[in-house]
Design a protein around this nucleic acid. Structure first.
Lengths: 205, 205
DNA sequence: TTGATAAACGGAACGATGTTCCGTATAAAG
DNA sequence: CTTTATACGGAACATCGTTCCGTTTATCAA
């Protein structure tokens, strides 16, 4: 058996010392994600991978090292966006009154849906690579919205008979039908929908 | 000016004698449509055009002469399929009792939706080439279903309070959710839905 | 029947795209 | 500083959709 210097106090068997991840690798990964988000928002998800690699100042080989398939990059970007949107909920809840936070977050969610132009095509493409995305959407976004709704309910600012899932879906539908209209209209309609939550609240006037 | 032999008794100006469409051209067009339908049903709409041309025993140039864009071929096949489905309605109405005809046609419609796997992606792709398809669906299928429903209503076999549009959409949804399930389940559920039409009919037992 | 001719055919070639491969560069560890 | 695992870069490949143009052929008039 080959002798290796002890990793630490643990038994020397099995696992070999895992070298730390190279700094440039981490940097490139971060840059690629940011660039891909920017490009996807501008040109849609069907943008060529080469364009993303170039704008990130990185070779195609590097891109493919981090994301073996084009779909992996798309999935990573979407998940990161969803994460960011979900995390916004807590921030808004801490900074505003419950209903105000809810209202702001909904507009944030509209942004999320709006910038994902062309993603629906990928989702419905039958490509197994995207199958996990809808579940991820729900898993992250539902709890976030649930928290906001609970807080607003507890404060007596909104009614209690609305399901987070229904709300999420309704807003998504309002947003997706606006692919040929102006985003301002979508925002107004969503605001109207959310205002509807105040009707019949516990602390009604 | 060049001299041309007179076309016919009409004034010699403007229109020249339009030569008849070549027989091989018509034949190739027909073959291409049939082959494309077969290939799309097997491999999905994302099948390469070259494969279709080869299986049709035709050069790519010929395919592109008839369908300048890949999307043109897809649209043509879909429209032809929709036409065929719509025309089935009249045949079934002539051959069966009203409700039986309705029931059969619905299963025919399920087939139509089922074989169009992956077409949803094209529809939602934002490609303007497919924008006209949903309207064509409604324009052809709604009247067909309307006729079957009217006949069944007149015979007192079903209730009158169901809109053709709602029915079409419901069945499509039942079918599309089956992309990961078995078609048999879809068929049973659709049959159940249609049987629901008999509840509360004029001539109820 | 036989040219003349417009129309259709066939497929090589082009450009774009996703993906692979491998020689080179370099950050981390001793 | 030397070593070495790791990551990088980009040429090269395969596969698309699409274009182009020389060749073939169905139609029509004589």
């Amino acid at each position: 058996m080959s002798e290796k210097p002890p990793c630490d106090g643990a038994s020397a068997a099995a696992v070999r010392a895992p070298r730390r991840v190279r700094a440039d690798s981490q940097r490139n990964l971060k840059t690629l994600l940011e660039t891909a988000l920017a490009v996807f928002s501008t040109s849609g998800v069907e943008a060529p991978v080469r364009e993303i690699a170039e704008k990130a100042g990185v070779g195609i080989g590097t891109l493919y090292r981090h994301f073996p398939q084009r779909s992996d990059l798309i999935v990573a970007v979407v998940r990161k966006e969803v994460d960011a949107c979900a995390e916004t909920a807590a921030e808004l809840a801490a900074a505003h009154a419950p209903f105000e936070a809810l209202k702001c977050w909904m507009q944030r969610y509209v942004d999320l849906v709006l910038t994902k132009r062309g993603l629906a095509a990928a989702l419905y493409s039958g490509n197994p690579a995207y199958e996990s995305l809808p579940a991820y959407f729900e898993g992250r976004l539902l709890p976030a919205l649930q928290g906001l709704l609970d807080a607003a309910c507890a404060a007596g600012e909104i009614r209690r008979d609305v399901e987070p899932y229904d709300l999420l879906k309704a807003v998504a539908q309002l947003s997706s039908s606006a692919h040929d209209g102006d985003p301002a209209h979508t925002r107004r309609m969503v605001a109207l929908l959310i205002d509807g939550l105040r009707y019949g609240a516990a602390g009604e006037q």
